[in-house]
Nucleic acid binder design. Structure first.
Length: 521
DNA sequence: AATGTCTGCCCC
DNA sequence: ATTCTGC
DNA sequence: GCAGAATGGGCAGACATT
């Protein structure tokens, strides 16, 4: 849509904008360039005000229904006609959410500290306020109006999401114990959606990892919380997972995602039943309990969660031995879960809202060299890079080999794992094999920017196989579509020893998928 | 009415 | 989600 | 080591198009 806006505003064709975007990799910069080239009208334009820009964007956001796309475009084109090329750049970046200033929430907190306090300590107090209320605008407003001392008045409260604590990752169990020990709580890591549950009597609100309100999606969870949580006012955290009530097993994440809907919620609640595995408590009896050590929070949690088939604590145990940690990890993986999270339980193991510290460490099988399956895939296409990857490829399209039909159906795109240096090498190396159109042997629903004849083979690591609506590998031989790789990344290894027909085959992928499904439920 | 395409301060 | 990189 | 910016699969919803 942004392409259309720029094309219209600069009175040029969409293909011109697309070509330019391909080279520059930034729709804002493209707008700046093209508008400068067609800049007669700006001489007579009105002066742009922030209020006008804001009101226009607000109106665009609120436009819905039939014809809304056309209407949104018209409003934005109107706005750009009053903008200088540079203003257009930032308007485009703002509306596509790609500001690319090197400034995020933490950068803003730094700025607030300097602007309103001017001392180092201020930063921590401001950040703490943000972590417990998750609202940067509110923090800034209170700070500006009432000063640094007012930050202490911003406190955790039921109904207001707390920024979630995250885990580091590590592959070596001995190192994990070293970092978080001497004793750690080793918990199963479930493949579901993280939920922060806020309970005030019968009122229950659910928040997602990014502080979105997701209460409406899980009426069954709300009910479970009302009945199984023996505390009036509290904030808990857990993982919401899709389950098979017959077997008691966990169903794939994709199934759970069918619950992310606004309609048919009651029907889907029956089709995709869920369970919640609680693992933390942040607020209890009207008090913030985040400062309590993990060990004590776990005890408190045990005392208020009344378990049944749908609600329980995460499976976990305390150990100080790397060997035992690995045993629990193996159990978790063998029963179809992602891995484990090892948590510090010592006196300093309070809940650190908004941070990713060594107090929590996750271990997944894909972190263990050799344990996860890497595959050798054929590069069949590429997608132009954006931002700092402008002029290079941002991702490549990769296929397996289907020996039966002698074709190369796609399994994934790969956009991570490349160093800057590799990206340069990648382009040089691949452009050698560039062809004008998709090779008839390449089976792909995905439209690449550049197609290659199947030649280069690379090693790719992934977490697991998923049934895919878009990728074609194995399509027709499985229920539900083809196969794709979840979380694909380049290992850095080119398989120069392999030609395309020696790449991982569709049969290999199906076998991997069946094996993984077998260990699951 | 069916199908295609794009978006989400999306989930992972 | 994973990964790389400038500070 | 942190914070930020690249990028992945895949779901439902909202429109546009046929």
């Amino acid at each position: 849509m942004a392409v259309q806006v720029v094309a219209t505003a600069a009175s040029t064709s969409e293909s011109t904008v697309k070509d330019s975007l391909r080279e520059i990799g930034d729709i804002g910069a493209v707008a700046e360039l093209l508008l400068a080239e067609s800049a007669q009208a700006t001489l007579f334009a009105e002066e742009l005000t922030i209020t006008h820009v804001y009101e226009t964007l607000d109106a665009v956001a609120k436009t819905t229904g039939k014809g809304s796309a056309r209407d949104k475009i018209a409003r934005l084109v109107g706005l750009l006609s009053d903008a200088s090329p540079m203003e257009a750049k930032y308007i485009l970046r703002t509306l596509t959410g790609q500001l690319r200033l090197g400034i995020g929430d933490m950068g803003i907190i730094d700025s607030l500290a300097l602007a309103f306090a001017g001392e180092r300590e201020a930063r921590e107090r401001i950040e703490r306020a943000f972590n417990v209320c998750s609202d940067l605008a509110q923090v800034a407003e209170v700070l500006a109006k009432e000063g640094l001392d007012s930050m202490k008045n911003i406190q955790a409260a039921v109904g207001r999401p707390i920024r979630m604590m995250a885990a580091k990752k590590l592959s070596d169990p001995a190192e994990i114990i070293e970092k978080a020990g001497p004793e750690v709580l080793v918990e199963y890591k479930y493949d579901g959606e993280r939920v922060q549950v806020h309970k005030d009597g019968e009122d229950v609100i659910l928040f997602s990892r990014r502080q979105e309100q997701i209460t409406e999606q899980y009426p069954d969870v709300v009910d479970l919380v009302r009945h199984q949580i023996q505390a009036d006012i509290c904030i808990l955290e857990g993982e919401c997972i899709a389950i098979d009530p017959k077997t008691g097993g966990t169903r794939p994440f994709q199934e759970l995602m069918k619950r992310r809907r606004k309609t048919d919620i009651d029907r889907m609640s029956e089709e995709v039943p869920v369970a919640v595995r609680f693992f933390d408590i942040l607020f209890h009896k009207g008090k913030d309990v985040t400062a309590l050590p993990m060990a004590e929070r776990r005890k408190l949690l045990e005392s208020i969660v009344q378990s049944n088939e749908r609600v329980s604590l995460t499976i976990g145990e305390v150990t100080d031995e790397p060997e035992r940690l690995m045993e629990v990890f193996t159990q978790a993986v063998e029963s179809g879960h992602e891995g484990v999270i090892a948590k510090a339980i010592h006196d300093g193991s309070g809940y650190q809202a908004g941070s990713r510290s060594w107090l929590w460490i996750k271990l997944k099988s894909s972190y263990q060299e050799g344990m996860a399956d890497s595959v050798d895939l054929v590069v069949v296409g590429a997608i132009h890079g954006r931002g700092k990857r402008a002029g290079l490829y941002g991702a490549i399209l990769a296929s397996a080999y289907d020996a039966d039909s002698d074709t190369f159906p796609t399994v994934c795109k790969i956009g991570t794992g490349f160093t800057d240096e590799m990206l340069v090498e990648l382009k040089e190396r691949l452009d050698h094999h560039s062809i004008g159109a998709r090779s008839p042997k390449v089976i792909s629903d995905i439209e690449a920017d550049v197609w290659f004849s199947p030649a280069e083979v690379i090693e790719v690591l992934g977490d697991e196989m998923t049934v895919s609506p878009t990728h074609s590998a194995g399509r027709g031989r499985l229920e539900g579509g083809g196969l794709a790789i979840r979380f694909p990344r380049f290992t850095g290894r080119w398989r120069e020893d392999k030609d395309p027909k020696q790449a991982t085959t569709v049969a290999d992928l199906i076998e991997l998928f069946e094996r993984q499904r077998g260990s699951g439920q």
